[in-house]
Simulated assay, not measured.
Amino acid sequence: MRRLSVFNLTTLAFGLAFLYLPIAILVIYSFNDSRLVTVWGGWSTRWYAVLLHDRDLLAATLNSLAIALASATLATILGTMAALALTRFGRFRGRMLLSAMVYAPLVMPEVITGLSLLLLFVAADVDRGFSTITASHTTLTMCFVTIVVQSRLVDFDRSLEEAAMDLGCPPLRTFFSVTLPLIAPAVAAGFLLAFSLSLDDLVIASFTTGPGATTLPIRIYSEVRLGVKPEINAVCTVLVAVVATAIVMASLLSKRGAAAPGLPGR
């Protein structure tokens, strides 16, 4: 087994510190008693209490949660259907085009995606708001759901479906009774990943938002430009906790789905 050198360990430590030390400082200073965010005044949860009375931030938080929940649900449904099409229907006509369209948001810069969606909504004379952000986030996150579910379907034992249909089970009922329960961890992991990606998106939401549909990242960005308030540290800590929890749950569910046996539990 190859050992890590001192240089490799040092580089790894500096890399992890560069990524996570600012987040740790933000979390610590969210419990700062001082109004000055750069001056430590002792431990306190006062800014979390103040946050509960900030109507603008609470409204933006509710908007972000609602948009993330709606877009993640749509992305999970569409992504699962795309994964089934790419793994079950073989080399059908248009498969390459479908794959390219599904995976394009993975490599497309978010600025380009946001601008193209903005031009689409303007050309279609669609009022920008909750629905346009939800549609945009669905477009962004569907490809991630497709990848997660497709990786589970590649190793799926199709003899279970064939056995169910040989016993007279219709294809649709076979999917809901046999296939879906076995790929449920991957579907849930895709949902949580889509939820976290939608919750912290700023670029695409800033292009497709409208009056009354301000998301939490947009609200935080607009307030930070005028100076960081202690409440911002508190709400960012809450956002980090929610996103981290969703990512950890998605990772655990994905590993559970990959390690699941071919036969359902008895």
Rank of each mutant, 00 (worst) to 15 (best):
A259P: 15
P185F: 00
D155I: 15
F7H: 13
L120A: 04
L118K: 06
A49N: 14
F195C: 01
L202R: 01
A259L: 14
S34H: 10
V187L: 07
L84Y: 05
L140E: 01
F156E: 08
V50S: 14
F14L: 13
S44F: 04
L51A: 11
T73R: 02
R46H: 11
R46A: 06
I247D: 09
M165D: 10
F18E: 03
A13Y: 11
A75P: 00
V148Y: 01
T138I: 02
V235D: 00
F92P: 05
V6K: 14
A123T: 10
E223L: 09
L117W: 02
A68I: 00
L26C: 05
D54C: 08
T132F: 01
A104N: 02
R91Y: 15
L115W: 07
S198N: 06
T237S: 03
P22K: 14
V224L: 08
A213T: 05
G42E: 06
F18L: 08
L26V: 11
S222G: 05
V238E: 01
T10A: 14
L57G: 05
S254D: 11
D166S: 12
Y221F: 13
I67Y: 00
L120N: 03
A104P: 00
N233M: 05
V37Q: 07
K255C: 11
L263Q: 12
T245V: 13
R152S: 13
L16T: 08
T138P: 00
Y103R: 06
I147T: 09
L52E: 15
D125N: 11
S159R: 13
G190K: 05
E110D: 12
L57E: 02
L84W: 10
S5P: 02
A241D: 07
A75T: 06
A66Y: 08
L86K: 06
T174N: 09
L58I: 13
D125H: 12
S99E: 14
M1G: 12
M165T: 12
L153E: 08
A85T: 10
S131N: 09
A70M: 06
